[in-house]
């Protein structure tokens, strides 16, 4: 490692993501489920629905409602976290819900609701974007129609350098943090938040790095979902055109 190259606190390069893996269909009882591991982040998402919405007076006549709960387990942080929903968790539940609402075709299910339960078992920074990435896979696994997948990634400014996929220490000590979530095929941004200060150029650089990170995670999302079908068939995802008909 040369000294000129900026190396981050966990030994990564500025545009390097943490080690990641996504698995779909991990829970037997939920309609759809997924798990993401991003560095030490470990998040499990379960999806139920669409089902009849209660209380009935809250149900919408023309579309479904998404109920989203982002929750950090008491053992997810270095110090015990109270299991009571905190102000931050309530806000993140709302932010994740609005990001996913863009992708789900809610008009197909009037008067119904879709429940998304996000459990952060272990947290190490950028959990909101990791949650969105996993929730999107769980929705697809549940058979809920989506316009596009939703995938998120964060970027930030640490020691004056723009870095991708901000970890816990970098989040706390860094100058700025920029989580984004996108619909990769439709090329739409569904979440954009910023904490701290960035110049115009820095913002552009951070956004581009987060975008590249999100696209990398999107490939992993696809791999996780396609793996489900490959498991129950002999169809290769990248075939040579000689596949047999069913």
């Amino acid at each position: 490692m040369s000294k000129e190259e900026f190396i981050r606190v966990d030994g990564r390069k500025p545009d390097e993501l943490r080690k990641y893996s996504i698995n779909a269909g991990i829970l037997k009882n939920a309609d759809g489920s997924a798990e993401i591991r991003l560095g030490k982040n470990w998040i499990v998402v379960g999806v139920y629905g669409p089902k009849e919405h209660f209380p009935k007076f809250e149900a919408l006549q023309d579309r479904a409602i998404i109920n989203c709960r982002y929750h950090m387990a008491p053992y997810s942080t270095t110090e015990r976290k109270s299991p009571k929903p905190s102000r931050r968790e309530i806000e993140l539940s709302k932010v994740i819900r609005t990001a996913l609402e863009q992708a789900v075709i809610l008009e197909k299910f009037p008067e119904m609701s879709i429940d998304i339960f996000i459990e952060v078992l272990q947290a190490e920074g950028s959990t909101r974007v990791a949650s969105i990435t996993a929730a999107s896979v769980a929705l697809a696994e549940a058979g809920i129609p989506l316009r596009d997948m939703v995938v998120g990634c964060s970027a930030g400014k640490v020691s004056g350098k723009i870095v991708v996929d901000v970890g816990e220490e970098e989040d706390k000590e860094g100058e700025a943090d920029l989580p984004i979530a996108i619909m990769p095929n439709l090329k739409r941004v569904v979440l954009l938040q910023m904490d701290g200060k960035l110049t115009h150029e820095e913002f552009k650089e951070a956004f581009e790095k987060a975008l590249a990170g999100a696209l990398e995670l999107y490939e992993e999302q696809k791999r996780a979902l396609k793996g489900l079908i490959e498991k129950m068939s002999e169809i290769p995802s990248e075939g040579d055109g000689n596949e047999q008909g069913v």
């Binding site: 992708a103 697809a140 129609p145 989506l146 316009r147 596009d148 997948m149 619909m183 990769p184 095929n185 439709l186 999302q221 696809k222 979902l225 396609k226 079908i229 490959e230 169809i235 995802s237 075939g239 055109g241 596949e243 047999q244 008909g245 069913v246």
Partner: peptide, 9 residues
């Protein structure tokens, strides 16, 4: 191809 796997989007 005759058949292939797709994901939403």
């Amino acid at each position: 191809k005759k058949m292939w796997i797709v994901t939403p989007g």
